[in-house]
Design a protein around this nucleic acid. Structure first.
Lengths: 207, 207, 207, 207
DNA sequence: GATGAATGAGCTTTCATTCAT
DNA sequence: AATGAATGAAAGCTCATTCAT
């Protein structure tokens, strides 16, 4: 075995380092919360040494901010094309959108970050704001457009809910958040479907 | 030595101390999360010294558990009389119940504890379980009975939602949880009312 | 049940309290070492409260000193009549004396105190000195007389050992000290007998 | 800022640090016992900061175990060549061996560690066992062989003592242990010589 | 006198951060 | 640029000691 053998390839593009650290941080933060995350673990997961983190981020706080932003920008990127949607009934599209959003949230570590923001939100007000703004612009707005089209088509009921479409996500968020607390029931997915039933029923126009 | 002694008199309050410490702990935990709560701060808030906490609680963990239990037992005590409800339409009662639950959650520091359980639930599995069990027995069960009466009366739609009535709380929980993250809009209550509209619509039987 | 019933008899002769505390302290010190002994445990064992100890002893240190003295004075009280010994061979008497001393040491908590003195002797120099003096006066001196009688009778060999008769105890002390470290062999007593054999052989006059 | 920086330079000595810490710990443990040893003092003695200890040892317990093992392995390493001994009378060799063992014990801080093991042996049962095992294998066994040769040669008396040769060390151990308690008499060595006289007399075969 | 609640100095331990290499 | 040994502030916890009752 040569001397150069037992270390991973030294050459990394300098540009990928921050992203790798953020990725590792994301996982650790999501798993252990903010205070529970040790920079050593982040470093280990990223395959670097603790000190290197400080080359790219001034401190733990900054790493978290950056990671949080990155993840939320990533997650919401897919949503943007929403409005480009064919004519026809709006309800199935809406339902699917909620479903996709739920699945996304339940699987990714966005959930972990969200939990952190809930508890430590006061420490990161700009993140909370950015989070809010992004959600409003990228999620609520397209949703509102969709809903309004549904109302215009006589498909959806006309109601105050259209002013705060984001609330349609609420049940999904709670189910995702409490999933780890809930007993391991095998009908997890069905829970959300049941909720969707109620929600859709609630907004469909009555004959 | 001046007239104002710089040390407050030692008071002996064996009976009330635990409750005072729990109260102080509750506030600190709700404000700062579990890891973020320093026993010094709890002591200061309770007007005692650090060591005194250890007279009444073996460690920080135990204090949190006790505080959590105390608060949840307190909060849920009011709910118990639910089922003793007069005949007649069920929907307004349901709506009021959700409203009351929301207000309760939004105001008390139960919200802070809930946040902690979301993030650190893994560390306190028995609390998570107790929380779940209490909610199921004290909240979900009466709710289910109410709903079933509504269905029997032809008032509510027959649907899968009756099997998981707790889900009706979800929107309220999210609104409460994210309230601190949300911009301070004065129409907070209206948001929940709007949600109630949708929810009630979703479960009312269609003509 | 009357009010006076659930407490042990209140009336104690004031004079017995210190002795009771010392007794309790002795046991705890012997079991747990000096630093390892908590005054709470001493109090509990003595059936009193922590504060009461401070009525009789200024501090933990003082309690230990007093306890130590008491035990050693007690233990050595029996030894004093040693010299009043009938004429005849001295060896069996010597042997029995060593045996008795060994048994005494092995059983009582004097062993525990001795261990403490070994480790913390520097903190209690007067105790070490008192211990030494007592042993010399009460044990070594009678022993020396006995030995000299043996030599005079032509029974024991004439040797330097007569100047430091205390050394005859050494093997017993080591066996007692290490008994807790040693594997639980059932032949414990025989070990000491074997040692006695060697010792006696070593001092008996050769034909 | 003056020319003498008030902080010593950080040195990086990964290889030597553990040994230095152990050395410092050894001294402190020997001086103050286990509970009496503060890691701050160990750190100060080692010329490092408190935290650095935790780079190399998970906790105080581990440091003690490691230190203990290190010292005992060191101390007993020299003894191993024992059996390779020329023909001829065995008694002088035995006597010298006991003398060497005594000197070794009396000087090194092995004595301090031994004291700790006597008092806190219950907390470190594996150390007690390792200690016992090492002593048996490395010390008692060669000694037994030597003794048996002596008996075979008609030099030593045949007696039960040969089954527990370790007991020959007992007087030396007691003398060493109590040396700190004893008055600083300058004839310390002679005490042990006197004891050796008795011991050797006791095992030499009588004509 | 007796009590035990209350204290706080002091200990072990953790970990973000620094910096010599 | 990268490392990880070293730091030290700060946290949880212990317990001898005090003192109001």
């Amino acid at each position: 075995m040569t001397a150069e053998n037992d270390k991973p390839p030294r050459r990394r593009r300098k540009d990928t380092r921050p992203a790798e650290i953020i990725e590792a941080g994301l996982i650790e933060f999501a798993l252990n919360g903010y205070a529970g995350t040790k920079l050593t673990h982040v470093a280990t997961r990223a395959g670097i040494s603790k000190g290197t983190i400080y080359h790219y981020f001034p401190d733990k706080d900054a790493l978290f901010r950056q990671a949080f932003r990155t993840r939320f920008i990533d997650s919401l990127a897919d949503v943007e094309e929403f409005p480009s949607i064919p004519d026809g009934p709006v309800a199935p599209i809406l339902r699917m959108a909620l479903r996709i959003a739920y699945d996304e949230l339940a699987q990714s570590d966005a959930l972990g970050l969200l939990k952190i923001m809930l508890v430590e939100g006061d420490r990161f007000p700009e993140l909370a704001k950015a989070c809010r703004d992004d959600l409003l612009v990228k999620v609520a707005e397209p949703l509102r457009m969709l809903i309004q089209r549904g109302i215009a088509q006589g498909e959806l009921a006309d109601g105050a809910y259209q002013t705060i479409p984001a609330i349609l996500f609420a049940p999904g968020v709670v189910i995702a958040l409490t999933a780890s607390m809930a007993e391991n029931t095998t009908d997890g997915p069905d829970v959300f479907d049941t909720v969707l039933d109620v929600l859709m029923m609630g907004i469909l126009k009555r004959p």
